[in-house]
Amino acid sequence: MGKHGLIPIPDAINPFKVRKQRLMNFNPVTASTSRKKVEKVKITVFEFDAHSIREEVMDSVSDCFKFRETKTIKWINVDGVRREEVEKICEHFHIHYLLMEDIMSEGQRAKMDEIGESVFCLLPMMYFMAESSTVDQEQVSLVLAKNVVISFQDDPDRDVFNPIRERLRTGGTKIRNSGADYLLYALLDIIVDNYFMVMDSLGERIEVLEEIIPRQPNNRTLARINFLRKEMLVFKRGITPVREVMNGLMKSENDLLQETTVKYFKDVYDHIVQAVDLSESYRELVMNLQELYHAQMNQKLNEVMKVLAVVTTLLAPLTVITGIYGMNFDVMPELRSPYGYFIVLAVMLFIFVSMLMIFRKRGWF
Rank of each mutant, 00 (worst) to 15 (best):
M1G: 10
M1P: 14
G2F: 12
G5Y: 04
L6K: 15
L6C: 13
I7G: 05
P10Y: 05
P10C: 01
K20L: 02
Q21H: 14
R22M: 04
N25E: 15
T30E: 09
A31E: 10
R35S: 07
K36G: 10
V38H: 08
E39M: 07
A50N: 03
A50F: 11
A50E: 07
V57S: 13
S62C: 12
D63V: 10
K66F: 12
F67H: 02
R68G: 13
R68T: 11
E69V: 14
K71R: 09
T72D: 08
K74H: 12
V78S: 09
V78I: 09
G80Y: 01
R82T: 13
E85Y: 03
K88W: 10
K88S: 11
C90W: 02
E91L: 09
E91T: 08
F93G: 02
F93V: 03
H94S: 15
M100G: 02
D102H: 06
D102G: 06
D102C: 00
I103E: 08
M104Y: 06
M104T: 03
G107F: 12
Q108E: 15
M112V: 01
E114H: 02
E114C: 04
E117I: 00
V119H: 00
L122Q: 09
M126S: 13
Y127L: 11
F128G: 02
F128N: 10
S132G: 01
T134W: 10
V135F: 03
V135L: 13
D136S: 15
E138T: 09
Q139A: 02
V143Q: 06
V149M: 04
F152E: 11
D154Y: 12
V160I: 11
V160P: 07
N162T: 01
N162E: 12
P163V: 07
I164H: 12
A180L: 01
A180G: 13
Y182D: 04
Y182K: 02
L187F: 04
I191H: 10
V192A: 00
D193Q: 06
D193I: 14
V198K: 09
M199A: 06
E207I: 03
E210C: 11
I212D: 10
P217Q: 05
N218L: 09
N219A: 14
R220S: 15
A223R: 13
I225Y: 07
I225M: 04
F227H: 09
R229L: 04
E231T: 09
V234K: 07
F235P: 00
R237H: 08
T240N: 04
T240C: 13
P241V: 00
V245P: 04
L249W: 01
M250P: 03
L256H: 13
F265W: 03
Y269L: 02
H271N: 14
H271G: 05
E280K: 00
Y282I: 06
R283T: 06
Q290Y: 04
L292P: 08
Q296E: 05
M297N: 10
V304G: 05
L308T: 12
A309W: 05
L318M: 04
G326H: 07
N328E: 01
M332S: 04
P338L: 05
G340T: 05
Y341R: 11
F342Q: 06
V344Q: 11
L345E: 01
M348Q: 05
I351C: 03
I351Y: 08
F352A: 02
V353L: 08
S354N: 01
M355W: 11
M357C: 11
M357K: 13
F365K: 15
